[in-house]
Design a protein around this nucleic acid. Structure first.
Lengths: 149, 149
DNA sequence: ACAATTCGTAACTAAATAAGTTACATGAAA
DNA sequence: TTTCATGTAACTTATTTAGTTACGAATTGT
């Protein structure tokens, strides 16, 4: 799997959950959708459970389900729940005391703060239901299986 | 050196160049500012040369200088010249033909496009001169050497 | 000319990070 | 009580990036 595809992977499995009403999908099932391992899936979406976006149940018939209707799940929440910043450049001081570094970091930190706000606003306007609707539109148009491999 | 500190590193050495008028700074010199290797510096800022932000000269007295006044160097240019996207999440298809993936990628790509525009606008409003001015302010306030280690 | 200096770059090594895998404990349903 | 599924730790593998070494090319000073 490529790097930094966690957001994409998470949205992929969430969309499958959105399209699977009243039934749990196992980690193994979700893993097969994105061609990876069940443990990787659990690890990836563990944060979504902690954030109240999905629920997991153990044992017979267990697996994963959306905790809320897809209309109430925004991409901003999903992104935040994955625990990764969308702006991963570092502003850690490496030479504390260097005034040039301090000036650079001050500029970048202010930018980061404003940028994260902007990005969160943008991502808040997109819900899982939007993606699911787009998927359905594509499905109706082409009329084939939902997962051609 | 930490990961993804290339933007920070580049701005650091650029600020030093801005504060060093009429004189070239060698890769070795720049490297010592950010506690790294001269080859790493050359590699990092090679893109800045290609983008016309700095010039490099070989031989005796050679080294690096700004190609333009710092007022005319925006962070947007610097960031772009480093050749890294500020939004490094992947939208590469991994299961071509999967309609769910297509819907996810479509949503993320549209977001990316809008977000990159927003970020570029923000970064365009900050110039190297702004950072240099902030550095000078800090210098005057504290009144010590520019690179306490 | 020739020596000294400095960038340009290829090739290799080392470190960090993330994915993938194995193993097993925990919990729940048939 | 057997089976199924998650939770998680520990390990392996792959990828990326920084760091290093080496050397050629270009430029300046003597």
């Amino acid at each position: 799997m490529k790097r930094n595809s966690r957001l994409s992977s998470a949205l992929h499995v969430l969309t499958h959950m959105a399209e699977t009403d009243d039934r749990s999908l196992t980690s193994q099932h979700l893993a097969s959708f994105i061609h990876t391992n069940a443990v990787v899936v659990r690890r990836t979406i563990a944060g979504l459970r902690d954030a109240g976006i999905v629920t997991s149940t153990r044992g017979h018939g267990g697996g994963w389900q959306l905790a809320r209707p897809p209309e109430e799940i925004t991409l901003a929440e999903v992104s935040a729940a994955l625990g990764e910043s969308l702006l991963p450049f570092s502003t850690e001081p490496e030479s504390p005391g260097c005034l040039v570094e301090q000036a650079v970091i001050a500029a970048l930190d202010e930018f980061r703060q404003q940028a994260e706000k902007l990005l969160a606003e943008k991502l808040s306007s997109i819900t899982l239901a939007d993606i699911a609707a787009d998927y359905r539109k594509r499905f109706e148009k082409i009329g084939v299986s939902s997962h051609a491999v």
